[in-house]
Design a protein around this nucleic acid. Structure first.
Lengths: 259, 259
DNA sequence: CGGACAGTTGATCCCGTTCAAGAAACGTGG
DNA sequence: CCACGTTTCTTGAACGGGATCAACTGTCCG
């Protein structure tokens, strides 16, 4: 049972709230369908009425919006274990696109099944709510990044975020990972042009903070890089569970009552 | 009972999900404390551990983050009826600041009371979840606005968003409202400088799309303005309730079972 | 080997910034 | 009600960070 397909989902939700055995069983009992999708495939399209949500079992994905002129802004990244498009469970119209960055394995779950789970298991609902709140926190940091930081800082910040999230997901070392994005995609994520992203990467390389070999990023000086990146990892809320456990004891609210 | 202080909260949540009488009673039974705060006052500070949430009874507020260099980015606006800082109910560390834009009346509710409400009333939990998802959708649009649109479009987009949200909240006509923000704040919301915001407003004025008298914005040509603004209101999810009701019928999930 | 795509570099341009100074609006106290 | 200081708005002039355009290199894959 430990190798159940939905184990990554269970892990994710357990990192968001304190679940009991009943909650765990209900999560693993979710009906799902496995699917493999190619690079560039759309999971969700703007304007659609979502009927299902996608759990990323492997690979990378990103959220994206287009202006009327056709320029693209990447809004966020998603890595294996992320429940992409959880907001489609409650919102009735999709306001952006979600696309595969690499080839992805998915577990597809019906929206109605997630709603039933949430209704029957309040703690699971709160774990999913928390997950979407962390997404929102990342969006806020990206508004700041794109709105008020210069080009070098923006690029460095994105490198730090990817490093830290991949480390937290157990996918790579913080100091060495393979960049899943092309420079054009980095540009769309930072609100820059591919040409200028290239120059900023070169500058980071020349100043000795990183080394690039093909798509592998090696961070030579984490403190130095996160300094030029103005990177403070609080917004990723990676320690949510630890602080949650501590605070539940203080408050003894919703304390794991068997449902 | 119709003039209960928390009626705006009830209205807000009823616009997010289909509540039953029991849910309504539980919302109005929330313990709260009224407070009046001055312009510039902080509701939440980055790095704090949130213990309470604020319902805006009157006035305007905004979310904000600072870079290490001290430049400010405004992340979103909030108007009377908004439950600011709902994300503080689940997240244990605040990742941004929330500040009063004008003098505000607040109803302050303890975090633990909201959690208890959410545990006991799944539909209310889902309404609050939905509310935070709509906030997140607005953040996404702002990433696009600040990342990929030119200055004129950014400013026009913000004018459209404020107009449409004030209209939806019943606070003003879509075509005429009093701008609650200074040009410096508009600049921090659009990722521009105050000087350039001023020029863009002048250009919108000269081209006949808007007229400004002091802080009053009169939109002379909504279609024209929303066209230069690249404004598509889907991201505000203003019709969430209507589409929700329609879809609940299709699916009959969580169908208002008396709790 | 060849064709497509990603990355790299240089030269030039322009949108938005910066700096500065004056005008209007606002709040406060007399 | 006006006088006065402060904040906000407005406009001009010069500058610069990043965009744009264009050419070349490297790499992957058939």
């Amino acid at each position: 049972m430990t190798s159940h397909t939905l184990t990554p989902l269970l892990r994710k939700l357990e990192s968001r709230a304190l679940l009991n055995d009943d909650d765990r069983a209900a999560i693993l009992a979710l009906p799902y369908r496995r699917q493999l999708v190619e690079r560039e495939a759309y999971f969700v399209r703007e304007g659609e009425r979502p009927e299902r949500s996608c759990l990323l079992l492997s690979g990378f994905a990103f959220r994206q919006k287009l202006t009327s002129e056709g320029t693209r802004q990447i809004i966020s990244l998603h890595i294996a274990g992320d429940f992409v498009d959880l907001q489609g469970v409650m919102l009735n119209l999709s306001d952006h696109n979600v696309q595969a960055l690499t080839r992805c394995e998915l577990a597809i779950v019906a929206r109605s099944d997630i709603r039933e789970l949430a209704c029957a298991h309040p703690t699971v609902a709160m774990a999913m709510w928390t997950d979407t709140l962390i997404d929102a926190s990342i969006f806020r940091e990206w508004v700041l990044n794109v709105g008020r930081r210069d080009a070098l800082t923006r690029v460095a910040h994105l490198l730090c975020e990817i490093a830290r999230r991949m480390e937290a997901a157990g996918l790579a070392d913080r100091l060495r990972y393979e960049m899943p994005m092309s420079q054009e995609q980095l540009a769309d994520a930072t609100g820059l042009t591919p040409v200028h992203v290239n120059r900023m990467l070169r500058d980071l390389d020349r100043s000795g903070l990183i080394v690039r070999t093909n798509r592998t990023i090696t961070i030579k000086d984490w403190a130095g890089l996160s300094d030029v990146a103005d990177f403070n990892e609080n917004y990723l809320h990676l320690d949510q569970l630890a602080t949650e456990a501590a605070r539940m004891q203080e408050m003894s609210v919703c304390a794991a009552a068997p449902s």
